[in-house]
Amino acid sequence: MLENLLTPAAVALENRCAKLVSILFAGGVAVTFAERLAASRLYADSGLMSWRVLSFDRARNGVLFRHTVLSQSLFGGKGARASYWAGLAGVVLVLLSPARSYSFTAGMLPIVLSCVLAHLRTTYAGDGAQQMSLIVGVALLLGFNPWVTPAAGAVCLLFIAAQSALSYLASGVAKLISPIWMRGDALVRILATTAFGCELGFRLASISPRFTRMLCQVTVIVEVLFPFLLFGPRWMMIAFFVWGFTFHLANAFLMGLNTFLWAFLSTYPALYFAWCSFHSWAR
């Protein structure tokens, strides 16, 4: 059954999917790194996210953080900026290189290291897009370098697909057990806030409370059913992808969650690969 993943057609599909994943992933991390460089005064010694303050949270976390000079050079303002510039250089290499090439791997390495350092630095100000980017980045680095076989690449794409499916399922189930989501009030209430809402979104949600409540409940149902796209017919998979793109695009415009669009869309080619794999096994 798994041998179907090693046929020439499957390997060609794997490479195409990996390239698409890497393009969307690179776009997302490019925006992330550029935003962090634009906000780099946050990481300065007098900034809100200076290592002088954040190290307070990491003091008990291990040898790396107790070594003052090393941790300052890695996580201080200069270190943070250097890692983001290195990440941007990596993005250029990844976009210009085919998967499994030395240059692709050379590009992925600084991107993944930068993502890892961001996690080590602090979890404050992090979000789901950052989490997904790390997952996709590590999978691409491990599965599409010159030293591993196509079977490893298949494992990595299936891992990305599994994490993506888990993300929608977990998010959906958490909403399913939430009275505010199932009542249909969550959307309008979130859009009323200044941090994650907007005036336009609130007004649109308020035009027809019944429609908004239905939208809430449909979001929950689609998220819970999302993983099942892997087992359904092609039209169902396409419908889920269209819903997902629309959902994340709306979140980008109404809630300012711009990087989520890139991070989660980057998993869709891997989901497609998983769908094709499952359906070739099912035959």
Binding site: Q131, S167, S171, K175, A186, T193, F196
Partner: peptide, 9 residues
């Protein structure tokens, strides 16, 4: 992965 749920902001 449980964003904005079960208790949304």
């Amino acid at each position: 992965w449980t964003f904005f749920a079960p208790v949304p902001g």
